[in-house]
Design a protein around this nucleic acid. Structure first.
Length: 374
DNA sequence: AAAGCGGGGGT
DNA sequence: ACCCCAGCTTT
C-alpha cells in the first residue's frame, strides 16, 4: 500500500472524528437529560436478554406506541426462549398478526430454536449471526441487556446525528460517517443508558417535524440549530410513485364453510392465510378475473356471485384494491398450486388463523353479513 | 447499491 | 396525502 494511503487511513476514525472535549460534553449533557427526561418503557424494567431481544425486533420500523401492547401480550404468551422455540410457527404468526414485516416473526422463531440450543450470544459477531439481527439491533441488545458500549444507528440516531453535524447528504448516503460518529460518541462506561438516551432524544425532542430545540441538551453544540436549518434536515430520499393493483378476491362457499389458503413461507405476507384471488388483467371484468384466478390457482370451478366488500390497502411499495365477491363452489378438488395449504373453515374459525390486515377487513364484513342473517 | 418487506402514528 | 418509524435480507 502506498505511503499516502497509509497516512490517510491512519488518521482513522480520522476524517470523521469529533474533538475529544466535545465528545465528553455531549455525553454528559445527554446522560443528565436522560436521567430526568427519559421515557419509561416496559422493556426498560428488565435486563433479561430474551425480553430485550423481542422488543428490539418488534421495534424495527415500528413505533413504540404500536409495539407496547404486542410486547405485553407476547411476554405473557411466550415468557421464555424455550416457550417460543417450542411453539408452532402458526401460533407465533398469530401473535404477530397486524404488526407487519412478518419475516421478523419467522426469524424470531428460527432464532429461538438456535438460542435454546446454544444459549444467548453475548458478542457482536455471534448475535449478529442470528436471523433478523443486523448491526443496529445487535448493538441495541448488547447495550441494553449487558451494558456493552456497542453503538447503534437507527432512524432516530441518523436524524439526531445528521442535525448535530448539519450533514449535507441523505443519511443513507453517509452511513460510514454516521457510524463513525455513533462509535465515537457512545460512553464506554454507560453503553446502555447512552444508547437509550440517544433514541429517546430522537423520539421525543429531535423529532422529524417541529423539533423541540429549546429543551435539547445538545442545542448549543448542534450545527443545524446554530445555522437555523434544523427543520430542513436531514435531507430526505426522493421516492417514486407506487403502482396500483386491482385484485379480484373470492369468498368461496361450500355448505357453511369458506375456502382459505396459506401463502408460501417466504416473501410478501409469507406463511399467512388469505382468501384466494389475483390481479385483474386488461379488458377483464372482476367476475372473469376471479373465475380465471381460482381455476389457475386452485383448479376448481365456481360461480361468482354478489359483491361482499371493496377494500383499499396501501403497502410500502404498492397499493391494492380488493374487489371481494361471494362465490359458490361447483366442482373439482382444490389443488395447492400457488400456495402451501388449503382449508375449508367456518366463519367462527377464521379467528384461529393469522391473516394480513387487508383480509381482516374482509372477515369483519363476513361476520356482519352472517350476523344480520343473509 | 437497490429493492422487497406491513401497518400505523403524526402532521 | 405524505413522511416516518429502535432495519434486515436478498438481489
Amino acid at each position: 500500500m502506498s505511503n499516502k494511503k497509509s497516512i490517510k487511513s491512519s488518521s482513522s476514525a480520522g476524517s470523521f472524528s469529533l474533538p475529544n472535549f466535545l465528545v465528553s460534553e455531549l455525553r454528559s449533557r445527554l446522560l443528565d437529560w436522560y436521567a430526568t427526561s427519559g421515557r419509561s418503557l416496559p422493556w426498560r424494567e428488565t435486563r433479561d436478554p430474551y425480553r430485550i431481544w423481542i422488543s428490539e425486533i418488534m421495534l424495527q420500523q415500528t413505533q413504540v406506541k404500536t409495539v407496547i401492547p404486542y410486547f405485553d401480550r407476547w411476554i405473557q404468551q411466550f415468557p421464555s426462549v424455550q416457550s417460543l422455540a417450542d411453539a408452532e410457527l402458526q401460533t407465533v404468526l398469530k401473535a404477530w398478526e397486524g404488526l407487519g414485516y412478518y419475516a421478523r416473526a419467522r426469524n424470531l422463531h428460527r432464532a429461538a430454536k438456535q438460542i435454546a440450543e446454544t444459549g444467548f450470544p453475548t458478542d457482536l459477531d455471534s448475535i449478529q449471526a442470528l436471523p433478523g439481527i443486523g448491526r443496529t439491533t445487535a448493538g441495541g441488545i448488547l447495550s441494553a441487556a449487558f451494558d456493552q458500549p456497542i453503538s447503534i444507528l437507527d432512524g432516530n440516531v441518523k436524524r439526531v446525528l445528521a442535525r448535530l453535524i448539519a450533514l449535507d447528504k441523505v443519511p443513507n448516503k453517509a452511513l460510514t460517517q454516521l457510524w463513525a460518529i455513533s462509535d465515537q460518541l457512545i460512553d464506554p462506561e454507560n453503553g446502555r443508558d447512552f444508547n437509550q438516551a440517544l433514541m429517546d432524544l430522537g423520539a421525543t425532542v429531535c423529532t422529524p417535524k417541529n423539533p423541540a430545540c429549546l429543551v435539547c441538551p445538545w442545542r448549543s453544540h448542534c450545527k443545524a440549530y446554530n445555522l437555523g436549518v434544523q427543520s430542513e434536515l436531514p435531507m430526505s430520499e426522493t421516492r417514486t410513485a407506487i403502482p396500483h393493483k386491482v385484485i379480484g378476491v373470492a369468498v368461496i362457499w361450500k355448505d357453511q364453510r369458506i375456502l382459505i389458503d396459506r401463502r408460501k413461507p417466504e416473501g410478501l405476507l409469507g406463511g399467512l392465510w388469505e382468501f384466494p384471488g389475483g390481479k385483474l388483467e386488461p379488458g377483464e371484468t372482476i367476475e372473469e378475473c376471479i373465475q380465471r384466478e381460482i381455476r389457475e390457482e386452485l383448479a376448481i370451478d365456481i360461480a361468482v356471485g354478489e359483491q361482499l366488500i371493496v377494500v383499499d390497502h396501501t403497502y410500502t411499495h404498492f397499493r391494492v384494491t380488493l374487489n371481494v365477491h361471494h362465490c359458490q363452489y361447483l366442482a373439482g378438488e382444490p389443488q395447492a398450486i400457488e400456495c402451501d395449504e388449503i382449508r375449508w373453515v367456518a366463519v367462527d374459525e377464521l379467528s384461529d388463523y393469522p391473516f394480513p390486515k387487508a383480509n381482516i377487513k374482509i372477515i369483519e364484513a363476513l361476520r356482519s353479513v352472517s350476523f344480520s342473517g343473509s
